[in-house]
């Protein structure tokens, strides 16, 4: 399994906002344990999906040349849940993007129903982080081909994926 918790972007306006969808399916193992007899998408993974939506939105501002890490979730409220067969729509709005990092406001919906809303703060980490270990952006935050999610939209339009 890959750590990609969004399936496709359906809207992406650089420096402004992004909207991604996540289809919940019983093929995902965790839904069989969370919870037995009551399969719902774990809130932690919805948060991850919202963070990936917002993280890529912030990353794109600097053309993925800065290392973006999830630093803080000041506020997150879950109002409802999502079950297999639901399509979660994650919306991230860029509130601030600056040298040190950025902040997004996020929401999760199933149809018109609000499932979650909150705020996420990201920090930019120096390329030469403490300890002298160079962080390779491609192998770190936007790792495990997370950016491959950008290719999904192209595939939908019959365009070739970018090489990675």
């Amino acid at each position: 399994m890959r750590w990609i918790w969004i399936d496709r972007f359906v809207e992406f306006v650089n420096g402004s906002h992004a909207k991604a969808i996540k289809n919940v399916t019983l093929a995902e193992d965790h839904l069989h344990d969370h919870f037995p007899g009551f399969p719902v998408m774990p809130q932690s993974l919805m948060l991850e999906g919202m963070a990936q939506t917002g993280g890529i939105l912030l990353g794109k501002v600097n053309e993925f040349n800065r290392v973006v890490i999830l630093a803080k979730v000041p506020k997150m409220t879950f109002h409802s849940w999502a079950i297999p067969g639901d399509t979660l729509t994650y919306t991230a709005k860029l509130i601030d993007a600056r040298d040190e990092g950025g902040m997004v406001e996020v929401q999760a919906h199933v149809g018109e129903r609000l499932v979650a809303d909150g705020e996420i703060v990201f920090a930019h980490v120096d390329e030469n982080a403490e300890g002298g270990v160079k962080i390779d952006q491609k192998n770190f935050v936007f790792s495990m081909r997370l950016l491959g999610v950008m290719d999904v939209g192209k595939a939908g339009e019959g365009l070739p994926a970018s090489s990675q």
Partner: peptide, 13 residues
């Protein structure tokens, strides 16, 4: 440490 960044975001807003 990260709270200082959060505080700056909120003050700006």
């Amino acid at each position: 440490s990260i709270d200082f960044l959060d505080i700056v975001f909120r003050l700006e807003k």
